[in-house]
Design a binder for these strands. Structure first.
Lengths: 125, 125
DNA sequence: GCGATTCTACTACATATGTAGAAGCTGTCA
DNA sequence: TGACAGCTTCTACATATGTAGTAGAATCGC
């Protein structure tokens, strides 16, 4: 499932808490985004068509909830990036991150921890 | 500098070795891509307009070379992804990778190494 | 009950992206 | 010296994406 930039914004707002109405989503969008209400509705319709969200009616107002999980969306975004920009390999991608980003000691600690404990398959939101 | 999917393909081929002609680039594209020669030329023109590559003439044939480095392209792609999908934080992105990807022991070793040795700023292609 | 407000469903439209055809140049090889 | 092959420049066009207006239905506040 491939999301566009604008769609990520909507989904991010929806994942924050759902079911949600278009209005609620609008209110949760980052402050620097100023879309017309109808723009948001349009995005939601498109996301519904894509089966990324499910729309239902509460009374005669639409409420939305994600079908696509954040985790899955992240996963496929990372996969695309890896393929596109890192020859499909996650290893180099990670290396790049490690080398490129100056990590705080705490972050390093965390990562070491994560590495040691192996696959700690955690949050399943 | 934001590249589209098709542009990544072209750039990947160009980074492989340059200066290169459109024909050479065409020959280097992954086997599953079958674009008309003119499609490639179009992409190269667009990339030139974007200042991602520089076109010059050798005789009367165009040769191309990257202006945008692979490393920079990767960097900004990662940054976009982090912003879009991981609230701008690389830490969680990395965690996600670690948790989601089953790494081989060797990969883990490598990463541990990379973590320990800190910023080993390597390849500067 | 009625005006103000809010939704919903449709439609619209510019720009971006993927993909390529057409026509004209040029070099090459018989 | 002409036919062919490969290159160049232009133009075209469908689909995707970002962004929103309009009109009519529903709802809220008094």
């Amino acid at each position: 499932m491939k999301l566009t930039e604008a769609e990520w914004q909507i989904m991010n707002a929806l994942w924050e808490n759902w079911p949600a109405t278009a209005r609620q989503i609008a209110d949760r969008l980052p402050g620097d985004i100023k879309w017309a209400y109808t723009t948001i509705k349009t995005m939601l319709t498109r996301l519904t068509d894509k089966n990324a969200v499910k729309e239902s009616k509460k009374g005669n107002v639409a409420v939305y909830e994600p079908i696509l999980t954040r985790q899955n969306a992240q996963r496929s975004a990372l996969k695309s990036l890896a393929n596109q920009a890192f020859d499909g390999a996650f290893g180099p991608l990670m290396h790049f991150l490690l080398e490129d980003q100056k990590l705080s000691d705490k972050q390093k600690e965390d990562l070491l921890q994560a590495l040691k404990t192996g696959e700690q398959k955690g949050e399943q939101e």
